[in-house]
């Protein structure tokens, strides 16, 4: 710290002081403010830069005509009002289309129509459920019912009984052969 305060700013530090003094560490800034030699070196560069800026300004022409602004506000309001009108027109057209659609005979539905439609739908649903019930009982189409086993179920049972007698029948016939008693 003390060495920073004692030594003069080097070239690099001096240039940073010109760029922005706040970039320097505090001890160097303190030295700069206290040291006449370093301050003079810094000011010399700064003054040359200021001179250049001043001369450039002095040796430049002045603008001869004033900047003219367009009649922007009025123009803008006209444009805006046209835009507004177009927007309102679009909204009105949309509303008109919606109203026409709403009141047209094709989409217009009364309460009575709704009730009739409901009854019709219920009737259709009932028919559908009847059909479903029939299919649950016998899913075969009518044309197959004659050849299916379902229609001759009783005959088949008698026939099967004849072909393959039950165990009880076998026992009964065995007893008869051995001189048993007729039970039926």
């Amino acid at each position: 710290m003390s060495t920073d305060r004692e030594h003069h700013l080097d070239e690099n530090q001096l240039l940073w002081a010109v760029v922005e003094e706040a970039e320097l560490p505090l001890p160097l800034r303190e030295h700069l403010s206290a040291c006449p030699q370093c301050s003079a070196n810094k000011e010399m560069i700064e003054q040359d830069l200021v001179r250049m800026g001043q001369m450039a300004e002095r040796l430049s022409p002045s603008p001869r005509r004033r900047v003219s602004l367009p009649v922007e506000k009025a123009h803008r309001s006209i444009q805006w009002s046209w835009g507004w009108r177009a927007c309102m027109g679009a909204v009105a057209a949309t509303a008109l289309i919606l109203i026409i659609t709403w009141w047209s005979p094709t989409t217009r539905t009364t309460h009575r129509d709704n009730a009739n439609m409901l009854a019709l739908e219920m009737q259709e649903a009932e028919q559908l459920m009847t059909e479903v019930g029939r299919l649950v009982e016998n899913a075969l189409p009518y044309m197959y019912s004659d050849i299916s086993t379902e229609s001759n179920a009783t005959l088949d049972e008698e026939f099967m009984q004849f072909v393959i007698p039950s165990i009880e029948d076998e026992i009964l016939s065995y007893d008869l052969e051995k001189g048993g008693v007729w039970l039926c």
Partner: peptide, 17 residues
Amino acid sequence: ERSDRAEALDKLMIQDF
């Protein structure tokens, strides 16, 4: 190029600058 403000100044100096 010379400007109105710089008319009083030496033309050579302006060019030099």
